[in-house]
Design a binder for these strands. Structure first.
Lengths: 248, 248
DNA sequence: TGCGTTCCCGCATAATCACGCAAAAAATTT
DNA sequence: AAATTTTTTGCGTGATTATGCGGGAACGCA
């Protein structure tokens, strides 16, 4: 195979996937990693792509990739990390939206073999980056504010699913009113998510504790696990533990 | 064997395989490598092919390799701009994926009041940025390679839609084989998209013209409009115009 | 911190190229 | 037809390019 041919192939792959791994390319093209690296370097010098450790990125995605890493509060990372341990191979996981969830998806171990159901567009996009995850997007009309699909369609489809786990990004959680949210359409979907899963996990930064919004998603007795960035023994959490929630 | 004969053979091979190796040619033509190289050099000077180390490539290769300054290719912007004029207020538009489409969505006039149906995740995300567009995402299992929903579910849902316009990002388009693509699941969805729309528009960079993939999406008689970055009068497009396609 | 991966550097090897020259072939002139 | 010129071709030599490999440095991740 000619060098230019190889480089054309690389450009093609970049255009399709927005990224390439050196390790992948050297298999696909049947050349050594050094050769691939030299090709990438050359193409990078010509401005056709951006060389990064382990492969290369499309130029157009340089910015989005960079800005993607910005919103990583350390608290969210802690929460995400705790939640990941709940996800096992073969599980069917229903997952809502929010930046904490994005963090979580980002941190999923690459060898995890699970199926994820979501109605949230950014989450879906993130999940697509995962090498092994199967992703089901329940679609319908998209709600701009939450970047997610809502409506009877979605609720009905969720009703046809029996999930192992429901990971719920939580805006507000309170001892009396349970989990609450702002928009009617979001509530509906979250309700359906909880209903279809065997186990419901609420992910919330501690500042969300003991706050309420207008509309109730569910009472606390429907929530099985509560995850915050705090230590499970923290006194802020003990009232929740007394209500029967597992605290992580 | 005469020199002209040899060169004609080389051109023929280039047309078939898009490349030739000097080492192959000197065997096939029973001449020395030097002679082959001199032939290639001559043909390169006449612009019939591109000389590279080890052989030569068809001119189309040069295009893919040289003109892909991926970050918002000017060609794509031109195409997107032309396509946008087709979208009117109140329309229901079915839209596929691809970077050209993303460019298009990005350029949509903010006051446009249209509904968009898509199965492509990045496109959906981009559409959500638009202040007025209503976005419908037809969901199901997501295909990683294309970042889009595929499967019977999607096809069926598309069947329930009567769209005004179908904007089709096109991987390969050819006079004989029509629009073609690589993956079975993608084909199915694109077919359904075409079927549900009153008018089908193919968006393709000129380098995609007269190329084919394994699987047929549709014949050219199902396509109403072809948009490339070229002027409609360009000779590359006249064969398509003769088949009844509108060229923009 | 430590471990595995990826990267960078230099070198060895092989393939390819460029140049000059002379023989062969073709075209032109005598 | 013979001689001459022009073109084409093959070959040898040395230069250039492409590639793979080894070893140590750098990186990323836990």
């Amino acid at each position: 195979m000619l060098k230019k041919e190889r480089q054309a192939y690389i450009i093609q792959q970049i255009n399709i996937h927005n990224k390439v791994l050196s390790s992948d390319l050297c298999v696909q093209l049947d050349v050594s990693e050094d050769t691939v690296r030299r090709d990438l370097q050359e193409l990078a010098e010509e401005g056709k792509l951006i060389k990064v450790h382990g492969g290369a990125l499309a130029k157009s995605f340089h910015f989005t990739i960079e800005s993607k890493q910005v919103y990583s509060l350390p608290e969210k990372k802690i929460i995400a990390h705790k939640a990941i341990d709940l996800i096992k191979d073969g599980m069917l996981v229903v997952i809502s939206g929010g930046t904490t969830m994005r963090e979580l998806v980002n941190m999923l171990p690459p060898d995890l073999n699970a199926t994820f159901v979501t109605t949230n567009v950014p989450i879906a996009l993130e999940l697509l980056e995962h090498p092994n995850a199967e992703v089901i997007f329940l679609g319908n009309k998209l709600l701009k504010s939450a970047q997610m699909a809502v409506g009877a369609e979605v609720v009905q489809r969720l009703g046809q699913i029996k999930a192992d786990l429901c990971l719920l990004g939580t805006n507000s959680i309170d001892l009396n009113f349970g989990i609450t949210d702002l928009e009617w359409e979001i509530i509906e979907v979250k309700k359906a998510m909880i209903a279809c899963a065997q186990k419901t996990v609420s992910l919330a930064i501690s500042e969300k504790l003991n706050t309420t919004q207008r509309l109730q998603v569910c009472a606390l007795d429907q929530v099985d696990v509560l995850i915050t960035e705090l230590a499970p023994t923290n006194e802020k959490l003990t009232p929740y533990a007394k209500l029967g929630l597992s605290i992580l």
